[in-house]
């Protein structure tokens, strides 16, 4: 019951969490008459005991300086990595250097975009029909499966707006050998593309007329067959 009284002035003494009082205001020759913890108002150096107290806390302060940002950044980084692996957070697309790119073990070749091949029927007012033509060559059986199970193609304009494939004009007659792109990418019969075989694909988009000029095409494919961590990756092709 005989603890020091924090609210009381000396002689009980300050509690341990406060810096110590300077030795004595009366005998102080350094000029700090106020008895404060730091240097006096006239800019003189703090008394030796205060300096030592501050110096003793430098390791703690440095540790906090490292630990507090780490305690924020590490969970952020771990969660971001988990979301990217799950595909909950879309992968940022790598812009293809030229018309070819490797993605998830397959070689993608962008052959260009065809505008207005509606088969005679007019597109809705203010819109254009755009077909993106690709040839994809899976490198092995695993790449074929990844293509069949996860490949998605979307159109992206300069402003970052994206369009999924349209089902309008799906009754058009396309060449027989064109593969499927609606639920994963496969051959004309919807089966996996055999390894080392080039498969032509046509992805069809209905976009506003003002978006046609700067249109790019993003291909997204899982890079892993793990159910909970498909790790999707994406490549963006531009005309």
């Amino acid at each position: 019951m005989d603890r020091p009284e924090p609210a009381q002035p000396p002689p009980a003494g300050p509690p341990a969490f406060l810096p110590p009082e300077p030795p004595s205001a009366a005998g102080d020759t350094t000029g700090s008459a106020a008895g404060s913890t730091a240097g006096g108002p006239d800019g003189t150096a703090p008394p030796p005991r205060t300096r030592r107290w501050l110096r003793d806390r430098i390791p703690v302060a440095l540790a906090l300086l490292v630990l507090v940002p780490a305690a924020t950044a590490v969970p952020w980084w771990l969660e971001r990595r988990a979301l990217l692996e799950q595909g909950t957070m879309p992968p940022s697309a790598v812009v293809a250097d030229g018309p070819s790119a490797d993605l998830a073990g397959s070689q993608w070749q962008f052959r260009g975009a065809v505008t207005g091949a509606t088969g005679g029927e007019d597109p809705p007012p203010g819109t254009e029909l755009v077909d993106a033509v690709f040839i994809v060559t899976p490198g092995d059986a695993r790449a074929s499966r990844l293509l069949l199970n996860s490949c998605e193609i979307r159109a992206v304009d300069d402003a970052g707006r994206t369009w999924d494939q349209t089902s309008e004009f799906s009754l058009r007659q396309l060449p027989e050998e064109v593969g499927t792109t609606t639920f994963g990418c496969g051959d004309a019969d919807g089966e996996a593309v055999p390894a080392d075989t080039g498969q032509g694909l046509v992805a069809t988009f209905l976009v506003p007329e003002d978006a046609v000029a700067g249109l790019g095409f993003e291909v997204r494919v899982d890079t892993s067959e793990a159910a909970r961590a498909p790790r999707p990756a994406a490549v963006l092709f531009r005309d």
Binding site: P124, T127, R161, D164, S167, L206, V207, P208, D210, A211
Partner: peptide, 9 residues
């Protein structure tokens, strides 16, 4: 089911 909204359309 199947109705879709697209940017700018």
């Amino acid at each position: 089911f199947g109705t879709r909204l697209d940017p700018g359309i």
